[in-house]
């Protein structure tokens, strides 16, 4: 589902590359944790995979069609993200001016899903993430755990092949973090999506199928 080949990235003006010759793959239904020291380039790698940053060399192929996101223009990358990728962030990033159901509907609207189907999918997902009855609530009235549940619902609602999560439990207390992680892993597995989770949390990493460690020398 995700295939990274010979990827290298150097920030402009920097003497040393952030990383070079990175190659790995994540299969459908597989959940991979990406760990490493702060500043080692985990977020940069995630940004490159999402098409938000451009690597110097290499290829990043996503989805059954194995489209190389590196070769696409900004509009093409946006379209690929809208179809194939779901995101979960540490800071939740829920649009504060939209209701819970409107937030979850954003990927469906970008994909042109009809109103009826949209409503059904949102209702089902809200039930799956434990937020039934929250559809019309405003983000400001939700707790951190509830916000991250909304984010997980939004990441899955358009049935993407790849989930990218950046410290999804970083802003949560240990108990809530555990609940959210369970929910995320269960839902990703239920959808048979591939997932790459950037984390500093050892317990979280341990619950994934595989752990990739990014070091100055490359991936281990």
């Amino acid at each position: 589902m995700l295939s990274v080949a010979d990827l290298a990235k150097r920030h402009s003006g920097a003497a040393r590359p952030v990383f070079s010759s990175l190659s790995f793959a994540v299969a459908a239904g597989e959940i991979v944790a990406l760990v490493g020291e702060s500043g080692i380039g985990k977020s940069t790698l995630l940004n490159c995979i999402a098409g938000l940053d451009t690597p110097e060399t290499g290829a990043i192929r996503i989805g059954r069609a194995q489209t190389d996101i590196v070769r696409l223009d900004p509009a093409g990358r946006a379209a690929l993200r809208a179809r194939q990728i779901g995101f979960v962030f540490q800071a939740f990033h829920i649009l504060p001016t939209l209701s819970v159901e409107q937030n979850i509907a954003v990927p469906l609207l970008l994909g042109g899903v009809a109103a009826n189907e949209r409503a059904q999918r949102i209702e089902a997902l809200l039930a799956r993430v434990g937020l039934s009855g929250f559809a019309l609530r405003r983000p400001a009235t939700l707790s951190g755990g509830e916000l991250q549940r909304v984010a997980i619902a939004r990441a899955l609602v358009h049935k993407p092949g790849l989930i990218l999560a950046d410290e999804p439990t970083g802003n949560l207390d240990p108990r809530t973090a555990g609940e959210i992680l369970s929910l995320l892993l269960a839902q990703v597995r239920a959808e048979q999506a591939a997932a790459l989770i950037v984390t500093h949390s050892q317990p979280l990493a341990m619950r994934c199928d595989r752990i990739l460690t990014l070091t100055a020398e490359g991936l281990r």
Binding site: A50, L52, P74, A75, A78, A79, L80, R81, A82, R83, I85, F87, H93, L95, P96, T97, V106, P107, L110, R154
Partner: peptide, 16 residues
Amino acid sequence: ASQFALLGVLGLSPRR
């Protein structure tokens, strides 16, 4: 800015 960026990350094209 961060909301617009989020929309961009979720797949709204720069033109849109």
